[in-house]
Design a protein around this nucleic acid. Structure first.
Lengths: 241, 241
DNA sequence: TCAAAAGTGTTATAGGTACACCCATGT
DNA sequence: ACATGGGTGTACCTATAACACTTTTGA
């Protein structure tokens, strides 16, 4: 996360030669999870406006680039994660949301495994860092609003969509799964009741394998079956965590 | 809904003098309800591209206009309804969604009382008409996708948000309310159970008034209490229809 | 007195919550 | 043997669904 001496690439510094009138951008709320911690990836701006402030990573949408692709690109540039699909949440389009001109921005979010951010990514800004969602600093533009909307979206979607598969190993224990939900939703689940619910979800398949080298009774491992999940969804059953 | 000889105002005809590269627009899915019928307001395009095809009403966003304001303006120009807030659903930004250039469009919807469309509105297009949601014609651009997304949004939101207040009189019967839900969600509710649910919603207040001149037992009238509803919502109770 | 819709009550079942207790493993 | 979490069972409560029945009006 060291500062870089390379020329900064700034997200919102559009050719300011009098031509900048309007533009669209994507802003990405990248949530990182690891062992009962939920964080969000923020950059520290290296250029005006809001120089030095923390902000969401984002970029202008290229002329021949789909909106979704632009969001995925930002994620990829920061985390090297490919094939991730960022989820669209809401578009922010107040006239005065950007001091230099009209910028309409589309907010996206994703939940990924917490990881070290490669130095490459630091060309984006002065600094780039994971921040606990419990302690969000003051943010540039209307990024605080954007972040909050995306946090709401994450909390509501994770109950229905298998977003959590991104942050757990292929084979996981039910306690690990329960911890993801407890962390994201900031609430406790009863162990027994949680397991009863999982039992009703046939796409969560119990394996014939257990943990090893743990100093307590080893836990049975489970895996997520994508095909069964899709069938499940087709059938119209709406089971939520 | 007669054709107009006035110069057509086309939603997507931007100064095509070689400068048109990108623009943002709003597209509005205006649902109209009246007596167990759910319709949607469509215009017939008077200009290329897609001339003659049906399409959603929409317009480019003015340089100094908020996104939400633009959507409300489109609704107002068509229906004379003010103080309506269109609800944002999703932004559509595929590169090739508009044949003449890059147009990113933000989809909004509203549910309003079905009404005659004023002749004034017809300056927008060749024709403008309510279509049953059960028989949607082929639509221009990706408007079919947009419409479907908005229909999903309506169906999911109406259970939690009092959108239905827009299509019922101030004083209404529970049967009228039930019919709104049955029509929008295309399913039947049990009378007794529906009333039990309403009884639990303290913001639906029973009045000391009844219907008159009906050839059956007169129904008690109810009203929606906005203040109580907001309290309810603050308190975190999540009661849905 | 009849049709039509309002309005109420009963029962069965499913799902959620709280909690207690036993089990398997490493140290 | 004991600490640590894994794993299961039960009893209670509430929400929902299906359905039957009574009530009030105009014609």
């Amino acid at each position: 996360m060291a500062k870089s001496k390379e020329p900064k690439k700034d997200l919102y510094t559009i050719p300011i030669d009098g031509f900048f009138q309007s533009a669209f951008s994507v802003d990405c709320v990248i949530f990182g999870y690891h062992e009962k911690e939920l964080k969000v990836l923020l950059i520290q701006r290296g250029t005006s406006p809001y120089e030095g402030d923390w902000a969401l990573p984002g970029d202008l949408v290229y002329p021949h680039e789909d909106l979704d692709t632009a969001a995925d690109r930002v994620l990829m540039e920061l985390t090297q994660l490919e094939d991730m699909s960022m989820l669209q949440v809401k578009t922010f389009g107040k006239v005065d949301r950007h001091p230099l001109g009209r910028v309409i921005t589309v907010a996206y979010f994703a939940l990924v495994e917490l990881q070290e951010i490669s130095p490459m990514a630091s060309s984006w800004a002065n600094d780039i860092k994971w921040h606990s969602v419990k302690r969000i600093p003051k943010l540039a533009f209307d990024h605080k609003d954007i972040l909050m909307e995306c946090l709401d979206a994450l909390r509501s979607l994770i109950k229905r969509e298998p977003l959590w598969t991104r942050v757990l190993p292929k084979k996981f224990t039910l306690t690990e799964l329960q911890e993801v939900f407890e962390t994201v939703l900031v609430k406790k689940y009863d162990k027994g009741n949680f397991r009863k619910k999982v039992n009703g979800m046939k796409f969560l398949k119990r394996l014939e394998e257990s943990q090893i080298n743990v100093r307590h009774r080893p836990s049975t491992l489970y895996k997520f079956d994508q095909k069964l999940f899709l069938q499940y969804r087709e059938s119209g059953s709406v089971v939520e965590f």
